[in-house]
Amino acid sequence: MEIAIVSGKGGTGKTSLAVSLAQTLEDVQLIDADVDEPNCSIFLDMDTEHKANAEIPVPVINYDLCTLCGICSANCEYNALMRVPDQILLFDKMCHGCGLCSKICPENAITETPRTIGKILQGEKGNLLFNYGKMDVGEELSTPIISQLKQHISKERKIVIIDAPPGSACPMVETIADVDYVIVVGEPTPFGLSDMKIVIETLRILNMKFGIVINKDGIGDKEMEQFCIDEKIPILLKIPFSLEIARNYSKGVPFIKILPEMAAKFESMLAKIKEEI
């Protein structure tokens, strides 16, 4: 069973929940797909090693064949190619690796070569298998790294928890593609609710099964809970707001160590999720 944890707004508690779940459940793989700023590893006392490079294909132009017709640059959606009088310039950081240029070149003058944009790392300790992606400094394309990270999802593990990046655009969509269930971690504030609504709209368009975990319960207002009731969205769990949790979080201690009684609630949450999928 693959479960992705998303939020919309940053800082609502995706990583806290993902790490706490991973440390409670048996036979689990944790995937940190927030490749721009992965920080599950901070909460795990675990050595990781380099498994693979994350790459995108970028064009290489063979000037023995190129006639400088400019069809490639005119059709590049990302303006990564540019024709000047005597050559086609490649701006490799603009390139999304879509491959269109090599397909439409009438002279077959374009081949592709991989360019490394990040790394996939892996560690294992006790019951937990952990993988994460890390974008290289200066890069800006997280989606291909997430997609290549997900190729490391273990088929043997009983449960796979995927910590998604914040937001509701391509990186989040790539993270939740093909998962069985999505947990939306909400912070019960007007800001948290506003971002959560955008994520829910996205999840509905994608026909995903999802439920809400309200984190920092007790701060803000009751609007989020009311919204879930009105929209018939299951509230899977509430995690209380506590200074103790926040203090320990800042030291890299996940909340499950402070509230061990949450383990039983995790079990019933997973039971609810299993019923839904």
Binding site: S73, E77, N79, A80, M82, V84, P85, M94
Partner: peptide
């Protein structure tokens, strides 16, 4: 033509001017 380009507006503009 690059005024609303998603990215690479400068490049698009240069190509156009050339």
């Amino acid at each position: 033509p690059a005024v609303d380009a998603r990215g690479g507006a400068g490049l698009r503009a240069v190509e156009f001017l050339v």
